[in-house]
Amino acid sequence: MPCGHYRENMRGGVVTLFLCGDVMLGRGVDQILACPGDPVLREGWIRDARAYVDLAEAVNGPIPAPVPPAWPWGEALRVPAEAAPDVRIVNLETSVTCADAFAPGKEVHYRMHPANVPALAVARPDVCVLANNHTLDFGRAGLVETLDVLSGAGLRVAGAGRDAEEAYAPVVCPVADGVRVLVVARGMTSSGIPPSWAATAERAGVAHVPEPTAAAAAEVVERVRRVRRPGDLVVVSVHWGSNWGYHVPREQIRFARALVDGGVDVVHGHSSHHPRPVEVYRDRLILYGCGDFIDDYEGISGYEKYRDDLRIAYLPSVEADTGRLTEVRMVVLRARRMRLEPADEEDRAWLRATLDRISPGTSITAGPDGVLRAVGTAAAVRGPNGTSFRNSFL
């Protein structure tokens, strides 16, 4: 499948993206698909992936396994079908492999049977981000198999490769009229990526960043500069931070803003299991944490206050000639029986109020259609050096 849904003429000179957080098609989700892999796990309290199916069914009712490939996406597939985005970007947080060499020292391992790759392809992603802490759950052999399977399905990847050149390189998505979207992916140690997973000149791995420093941001900007043409739009997808909580460390804020100051148009952050702050900085979108999109977490208790059952499909639109953000639509969904369905009005209202409270200098509103929108409001977060923190994160 070619990268980007090429159009002869863009509507109004605007490029629209589809972005979501972690797509975790392994473990329990893999078990309900047509070709479930080996269910054996090495977790502290669950040793069989089918137990996650049992937990979900205990909360929300039976799952009619085996389910068709579109099942995990559910009503979410209507979002890109109706919005017709130019480029679709997902963070695939799952190995696609039959390998059984569990990465040592990890508590959780995700893998999806290669025969279940239609459950990913059905969403027609243009770029699958692999710079995350589950890509090498089954070693480098598992990563190479993942790369081979995705390539065989016509799916392009960013943030991992057979060597460093491939892993760190931008993916180029032609859109229309000479406009291209460049997608760069990085994964940080703070998300649980071991430094040993980094790709090298001789070794497969991920595009790893030890810390969100100014030097690391400059490296990304410089790598983009080498391939960027006038009119190109740039998305940097970054896997970072802890799983829970709304606090965003200042180092991450500085890193994201440094990317924007260096010419990046959208920062697509993920790793947290629930949505984190949204920021409009210098007319550019920064998503500090998109939250999970597809997973097998139903029935797992302890974090109910974060409402991790609520998921967001992000649809930012940017001017093709300037990269300036024109609109951010956020479609709220809810996970039930390992399938995404529309969230009700009460759930949407809760998420709108939460995002509005935690997002610095950004107002989150809801339209009559139930879709949330983000609008930048504070001049304090628009300085060229990203040094003002008057609007603090919680």
Rank of each mutant, 00 (worst) to 15 (best):
F18L: 15
G4M: 03
L355N: 07
S388A: 11
G192R: 08
S237M: 13
D356S: 12
V129W: 01
V234I: 15
F102T: 14
G161A: 09
E107W: 12
D48A: 06
G161W: 03
P36A: 11
V149E: 06
N391T: 11
S151V: 00
S271N: 15
W240M: 08
P68Q: 01
A153G: 12
L55Y: 11
S301T: 14
G161V: 14
R225W: 03
E82A: 14
G161K: 03
R156C: 11
T200Q: 13
E304T: 01
L310E: 10
P316D: 13
A99I: 12
V236D: 02
S95R: 05
G323C: 08
V220K: 00
C20T: 15
S190I: 01
A343T: 02
P66V: 04
A115M: 10
S191I: 03
V331K: 04
L92Y: 09
V375G: 00
P174L: 10
S317A: 15
R42K: 14
P85G: 08
G289S: 07
R223H: 14
R250M: 11
T146W: 01
F255K: 00
M24S: 07
A320N: 05
T365F: 11
L92Q: 15
G105Y: 11
H208D: 04
L77T: 13
G74P: 07
A258M: 13
V67R: 04
G289H: 00
G142E: 08
L351N: 11
E75N: 05
G161N: 07
E219W: 00
R47E: 15
V206D: 05
R284Q: 09
G263T: 04
A121D: 02
Y52M: 10
A119T: 01
V96S: 07
D148W: 04
S151H: 15
H109D: 02
I32Y: 05
V23P: 12
N9C: 05
P85W: 08
H239N: 14
R276G: 01
L233Y: 08
A353E: 15
T200K: 13
R88Q: 09
L33Q: 10
H247W: 12
A81N: 01
H134S: 01
Y288G: 03
N133V: 00
V129A: 12
L25P: 09
R336S: 15
P62K: 05
E57V: 06
F138M: 12
P212I: 09
P104T: 05
P249R: 13
